[in-house]
Amino acid sequence: MIIPVRCFSCGKVVSQVYEEFKVRCEEYQKVVKSGEKPTETPKEILDDLGVDRYCCRRMIISHVDLLQESAPYE
Protein backbone atom coordinates (compact mmCIF):
# COMPACT_ATOMS: atom_id res chain seq x y z
CA MET A 1 0.00 0.00 0.00
CA ILE A 2 1.70 3.15 1.25
CA ILE A 3 5.12 3.16 2.97
CA PRO A 4 4.72 2.51 6.75
CA VAL A 5 5.46 5.57 8.90
CA ARG A 6 7.91 3.77 11.17
CA CYS A 7 10.20 0.76 11.05
CA PHE A 8 8.29 -2.27 12.38
CA SER A 9 11.20 -3.45 14.54
CA CYS A 10 12.92 -0.41 16.01
CA GLY A 11 10.39 2.42 15.52
CA LYS A 12 12.59 4.83 13.58
CA VAL A 13 10.60 7.14 11.30
CA VAL A 14 11.56 5.90 7.82
CA SER A 15 8.68 7.05 5.60
CA GLN A 16 10.06 10.53 4.86
CA VAL A 17 13.13 9.19 3.05
CA TYR A 18 11.23 6.77 0.81
CA GLU A 19 10.28 9.33 -1.85
CA GLU A 20 13.88 10.49 -2.23
CA PHE A 21 15.20 6.93 -2.22
CA LYS A 22 12.80 6.03 -5.04
CA VAL A 23 13.90 8.98 -7.20
CA ARG A 24 17.61 8.35 -6.65
CA CYS A 25 17.20 4.60 -7.17
CA GLU A 26 15.44 5.13 -10.51
CA GLU A 27 18.30 7.40 -11.54
CA TYR A 28 20.73 4.60 -10.60
CA GLN A 29 18.82 2.01 -12.63
CA LYS A 30 18.69 4.33 -15.63
CA VAL A 31 22.44 4.89 -15.55
CA VAL A 32 23.16 1.16 -15.12
CA LYS A 33 20.89 0.29 -18.06
CA SER A 34 22.68 2.75 -20.34
CA GLY A 35 25.95 0.96 -19.49
CA GLU A 36 27.63 3.81 -17.63
CA LYS A 37 29.09 3.81 -14.14
CA PRO A 38 26.58 5.09 -11.53
CA THR A 39 27.65 7.80 -9.07
CA GLU A 40 26.00 6.01 -6.15
CA THR A 41 24.65 2.53 -5.44
CA PRO A 42 21.41 1.87 -3.51
CA LYS A 43 23.60 0.93 -0.52
CA GLU A 44 25.27 4.33 -0.59
CA ILE A 45 21.91 6.07 -1.01
CA LEU A 46 20.56 4.38 2.15
CA ASP A 47 23.75 5.25 4.07
CA ASP A 48 23.46 8.85 2.92
CA LEU A 49 19.80 9.04 3.99
CA GLY A 50 20.76 7.89 7.49
CA VAL A 51 19.06 4.49 7.37
CA ASP A 52 21.75 2.49 9.17
CA ARG A 53 20.15 -0.59 10.71
CA TYR A 54 19.04 -3.50 8.54
CA CYS A 55 15.57 -3.51 10.11
CA CYS A 56 14.95 0.00 8.74
CA ARG A 57 16.63 -0.78 5.42
CA ARG A 58 14.31 -3.69 4.68
CA MET A 59 11.29 -1.40 5.25
CA ILE A 60 12.41 0.73 2.31
CA ILE A 61 14.01 -1.87 0.05
CA SER A 62 11.16 -4.38 0.21
CA HIS A 63 8.29 -1.93 -0.05
CA VAL A 64 5.90 -2.10 -3.02
CA ASP A 65 3.90 1.07 -3.64
CA LEU A 66 0.39 -0.04 -4.62
CA LEU A 67 -1.82 2.79 -3.39
CA GLN A 68 -2.30 4.22 -6.87
CA GLU A 69 -3.79 0.94 -8.09
CA SER A 70 -6.45 0.85 -5.39
CA ALA A 71 -7.17 4.58 -5.69
CA PRO A 72 -10.26 4.25 -7.99
CA TYR A 73 -12.05 2.22 -5.27
CA GLU A 74 -13.17 4.38 -2.39
Binding site: I2, V13, S15, L67
Partner: peptide, 14 residues
Amino acid sequence: TEDDIPIVELYKDQ
Protein backbone atom coordinates in the same frame (compact mmCIF):
# COMPACT_ATOMS: atom_id res chain seq x y z
CA THR B 1 8.93 19.61 12.61
CA GLU B 2 8.96 16.23 10.84
CA ASP B 3 6.78 17.70 8.12
CA ASP B 4 7.43 15.37 5.18
CA ILE B 5 5.94 12.10 6.43
CA PRO B 6 3.38 10.92 3.85
CA ILE B 7 -0.03 10.18 5.39
CA VAL B 8 -2.04 9.31 2.27
CA GLU B 9 -1.96 9.93 -1.47
CA LEU B 10 -4.98 11.62 -3.02
CA TYR B 11 -6.05 11.10 -6.63
CA LYS B 12 -8.62 12.96 -8.78
CA ASP B 13 -11.37 14.43 -6.56
CA GLN B 14 -10.55 12.55 -3.38
